[in-house]
Design a protein around this nucleic acid. Structure first.
Lengths: 222, 222
DNA sequence: CGCTTTATTGAGGGCGGTCAAAGAGCGTGG
DNA sequence: CCACGCTCTTTGACCGCCCTCAATAAAGCG
């Protein structure tokens, strides 16, 4: 167990964290194997043992859970650079699939550990981040309108991307299953946001923000 | 040693975990201070620093988040024996309030650590458990009907309680805000479950299960 | 008991779902 | 380069689940 681990850091520990993640990222690259996954291909299944760590090199991944009658819920999306698969305990609660053709770095957790990585710390940080996002997701699904959900979703992508033009790696059905809506409602809300001059779609899966304040207001971040 | 407060877990590695938690629980009792909170009294606020650990001695606690216009979402409930406040990172994302008059053990995390507790492990396990529950909550809010949500909620209580007659520590409004519904819909679904001979309410806040298989079917656990 | 809070039940409305069809995007092959 | 076929997306019309509003009933609590 690493003595370097601190339970509660008072200062915003972004610098420390990114430094650690940088090291881990380097280690991941050296220890892991890059693999290619085709669109909709499964990375891991629900209830599978979770002894691998994954990092998106290129593409996008979704975690999903399906009810017996086919209703599907997406837990989260993972984009380039994101680490996943480490966050759900000994067994996966959701399965993971490639949203589109993707390259993913696959690392054995045990190998990482023996290579000297502070896996526990990485795991802890990742889990915490997942929990934060899951709770935000709960608020969105429990109490936001369709309009607000779609606005929140786009705003989240904006924060991740930090570029003027933002790509949507996933289709409308995936967005719907993330937001607890139907594909038609998502489409309608996107059209509405566009006609209200909040965002502008240059292509079906590419947009830019016209009115950021308006988007933030609609997202109702609480 | 009297294990008056058992840590609740559905996780696979229950034996290992409860052994560790048993030790921690003992340490908590010796290091912590029991405090009384009145109904609806705040235990901690949103965005407050999180350097305390809490354990419900008696009563019940809810975590809540409120949108600017008053819409409220409850993150989770914590009942007798449950540990909370440790799960949301350096700052709380939700605030915590007593559902009804409650006695809560309050422990300084730093004190726990210097007393030799494996706080890291406790923190990690708690966070992981929270994430599991949050993801289940996401599925419920995103893809289940009102009928299924209420059934899932009751089933969850049944699993926690393991007693023939189960108490509801919270009112209908709290249930509604947990399930992303209105108080009227919750009330209607409870009436429906009762007229379908799935459960039976001996009092407004006390029920027993008549048809467990039926309840599980309705809960659509995926 | 009487007062307040909480829960139930009913009637009606609206947001988002369902069903359907047309349009756009896109790779493949002529 | 366009035609073709497939998938994905958009848009429209209608419907139903759940919300809203309202009134009553029950439960706490002094």
């Amino acid at each position: 167990m690493s003595l370097a681990y601190e339970f509660r850091t008072n200062a915003p520990s972004a610098a420390i964290m990114s430094a650690n993640i940088g090291d881990i990222g380097d280690l991941l690259r050296r220890t892991g194997v890059p693999m290619n996954f085709g669109k909709d291909e499964e990375v891991y299944g629900q209830d599978e043992e979770a002894d691998l760590v994954y990092r998106v090199i290129d593409g996008a991944v979704r975690t999903t859970r399906v009810l017996s009658d086919g209703r599907r819920q997406i837990g989260d999306f993972y984009l380039k650079g994101d680490i996943f698969g480490l966050e759900t305990g000994p067994r996966h609660r959701f399965s993971a699939e490639a949203v589109r053709n993707s390259q993913i770095l696959v690392v054995k957790a045990s190998a990482l550990k023996s290579a000297g990585a502070d896996l526990e710390r990485l795991d802890h940080m990742t889990t915490r981040r997942e929990l934060d996002r899951a709770l935000e997701h709960v608020l969105l699904l429990g109490r936001k309108t369709a309009h607000e959900r779609v606005a929140s979703f786009l705003l989240d992508l904006v924060h991740k991307a930090k570029a003027p033009i933002i790509d949507l790696p996933m289709g409308r059905q995936d967005i719907a299953d993330y937001l607890g809506l139907t594909i038609e409602t998502v489409s309608r809300m996107l059209s509405l946001l566009q006609s209200n001059r909040i965002v502008s779609f240059c292509a079906t899966r590419q947009f830019r923000v016209i009115n950021l304040d308006g988007l933030m207001d609609l997202a109702e971040q609480g």
